[in-house]
Amino acid sequence: MLKIEDLHASIEDKEILKGINLEVKPGEVHAIMGPNGSGKSTLASVLAGREDYEVTKGKVTYKEQDLLDLAPEERAREGIFLAFQYPVEIPGVSTTNFLKTAINQIREHRGLEPFDAVSFLKEMKEKMKLVDIDQSLLSRALNEGFSGGEKKRNEVFQMAMLEPTLSILDETDSGLDIDALRIVADGVNKLKTKDNATIVVTHYQRLLEYIVPDYVHVLYNGRIVKSGTKELALELEEKGYDWIKEKTIA
C-alpha cells in the first residue's frame, strides 16, 4: 500500500529526514517511536503533503502512484488521513460545517453519489457513537476552546467519517488522560479492517497498550535505526531512548 524509499526532507534548508525506508501493507499497524526531534512528526507531515517541507531525495509510492506528486486534498481523497498532533483552531468553521463538503468532494473523487442532508446526518450519528463524541462539540468552531481530549476525539471522529485506507496518527496520545486515551484508541481499533493500515506516531509506549502494533520502528536523527515487533516498544519503555542513541553512535 505504502512504500517509502530513501526519503530525505528538509525545512528551511535544515535536513530533518535523512533516508527513511518503510513499507506498509493492508491490515497492518506500524508504530513509529523515537525521542523528541527525531523527525517523527516531519514524516507524518510529509506523507500528508504539508508544503513547508521540501523533499530533497527519495520516493514514496502509495497505491501504485507517486504520492509526492499529489496535492494534500488529492492524498486525502485517495484515502490518506492525518490525525494532527496539534489540531488547528479555525474560528467560525464547525466540524459539521466543513465535513459535509469534504466528504462529498471525496465521494465525488471516488465516483460515489454525494450524501444528501439526511444520509450525512445518519452517517454522523453512527460515527459519533463510535468515538463517544457529542453533537454540540461538532457544532462549535473547530477546536476553539476544545480540551486536549476533545480535540483528539474530534480527529478520530473525522477519521471515522472519511474512512481512510491509510491513517497516520501523529502523537494522538499527547496530552490525554487515561480515559480519553482509551476512548480514542477504542475508536481507532473499531475502524481497523483487513484492507486499511495505520501508522501510529508516538513518543510513549502507553498508547501501544491499546493500539497494538504489528511492527515498531525507532526513528532517531532522521533515520529508522531499529525495527521490530511490539516487544521492541516494551524494551524502549524499560531502557529509554538513550539506549538507542548510544547504540547508534557505537
Partner: peptide, 14 residues
C-alpha cells in the same frame, strides 16, 4: 488552517 482543511479533502477553492 488551509492545510488542515485540504488534508481533509477540501479543494483549495473550497
Amino acid at each position: 488552517g488551509m492545510f488542515y482543511l485540504r488534508a481533509r479533502g477540501l479543494s483549495v477553492e473550497s
